[in-house]
Design a protein around this nucleic acid. Structure first.
Length: 233
DNA sequence: GCGACAG
DNA sequence: ATCTTGTCGC
């Protein structure tokens, strides 16, 4: 891809995100006791015949029992390159096709990546919410640095957190989901507040991972889907 | 030229 | 994200 083309593409991406960001809401548009199904979502990649492919997996869990209710996957060629800050444009096409295959209707979606914790407040969790039309939460495994601001390490206690504040505004939260693990980075996607997003994330933490169950299992599912696809041919 | 860089 | 085995520690 030519440098000039990429630059034009990025300008287009920024324009799209600036339109959408005007409609972000950091308030719950639901009652916490109304949450029934929570979806986790992830994508794995591989190369074949000089092309790049991706497998998007969605795992739907019952909020109270934490039982797996439904799982779907969708595999297709990936056409948009990875550009830091524009993850949604790369992953959204697969995500939307996978969502079409769902028979259940999740109350909210949890993403592997940021939401409001983004230089334009438009990480994939926030960006995707406008297409899913459901509340979303962003859960990132590594810190996405904004304006050279570092995060403050929270105490080594399960549930401890520090907020990531830039120019007086809370962008997201560094959360120690379990004792003796690296923290994760939780941020609002849309139509949810940060405390609720944190509570839901902690609700889905078990002894096996620092990541919440829906995101963790979606990640495992994408690896399995990739392996099946590769063994197939 | 060098370092940064969610997934 | 992906390429990759064993190994140290709870």
């Amino acid at each position: 891809m030519l440098v000039l083309e990429k630059d034009e593409m990025v300008q287009n991406f920024i324009a799209q995100q600036n339109d959408l960001k005007e409609h972000i809401s950091l308030q719950n548009n639901f009652l916490e006791n109304q949450i029934s199904l929570v979806a986790g979502l992830d994508i794995a990649y591989w190369h074949k015949n000089n092309k790049e492919y991706g497998a998007c997996c969605i795992q739907v869990f019952d909020f109270r029992s934490k039982n797996l209710i439904e799982q779907v996957s969708y595999i297709n060629e990936i056409t948009v390159p990875y550009i830091s800050g524009f993850l949604a444009f790369r992953e959204l096409p697969l995500i939307l096709e996978a969502v079409k295959k769902l028979k259940t209707q999740p109350s909210l979606y949890m993403f592997d990546g940021n939401g409001y914790l983004h230089k334009r407040h438009m990480g994939i969790a926030t960006h995707a919410s406008f297409y899913l039309k459901k509340p979303t939460i962003g859960v990132a495994k590594t810190y996405y640095k904004i304006e050279n601001i570092d995060f403050t390490m929270p105490e080594n206690i399960a549930g401890a957190f520090t907020d990531i504040v830039i120019d007086g505004e809370v962008f997201g939260r560094t959360l120690r989901s379990r004792k003796n693990v690296k923290p994760i980075f939780v941020s609002c996607g849309n139509w949810i507040d940060l405390d609720t997003a944190t509570n839901i994330t902690m609700h889905f933490i078990d002894k096996d991972s620092r990541l919440p169950i829906p995101v963790r299992y979606a990640d495992l599912a994408t690896h399995q889907a990739r392996k099946l696809h590769q063994d197939d041919v």
